[in-house]
Amino acid sequence: MSEDGHPAPILTAHRAGLLGCRSCGRVWPQDRQTCDRCGADLVPPDRRGLQKVWAWWAAGLIMYVPANLFPMMRTQTFAGLQGSSEATILQGVVELMHYGNYDIAIIVFVASVVVPVAKFLAIAWLAMVAGRPATVEQAHTRLKIYEVVEFIGRWSMIDVFVVAILSALVQLGFVASIHPGPAAVSFALSVAFTMLSAQSFDPRLIWRGLPLRSRTATEGQD
């Protein structure tokens, strides 16, 4: 994005008095209300917009708690005569490891625990540092993390997909059946909320905290 070496300050749209469209990327003068090209509202980057991020993030975190406490999947064998087993995500991982399926256990663990937790941490960190003064390298790191979070968000649904597919496939009636547990819904909501949270994050804020050699640093704070 910025091409020069360190002495040249990076010119952001904000500093140029322009306002970028979040949908199509076109910049407009700051007094424009809507993007003429794509019709989207033009919203100036603002730390107040981080409230959205935090709100979705909080909702996602709240839903993540039951997603881990409630059973993910209810397996019934012989119409429940031989017993039905219910397992939360972590119980499932432990069970898989108990049976020696370490690879699958790792996949499930990574997809269902590591990634969501990392996402929560990443978004929280991004939201906290957004708009704060940063070096260009720091800004680049934040942007990469943001992109990774955006990319990986949809893959967090892998556990929900597994449950959904198994529930649909393993309906052998009397012999065995698998039903999604309450955790599946919670987990799906949690993932959805974190995705919304990541989407709500305005990456333009990353650049708001860049150091200004020539101008005053007070400009970053609103």
Partner: peptide, 26 residues
């Protein structure tokens, strides 16, 4: 390079709207 007043208005408006609505979700 000076933020125009509409920007401030927009920000204020967004802040007012955002606080009340989005926090309902969590």
């Amino acid at each position: 390079l000076k933020p125009a007043s509409p920007v401030r208005k927009t920000a204020a408006r967004a802040a007012q709207a955002g606080i009340n609505v989005i926090w309902l979700v969590p």
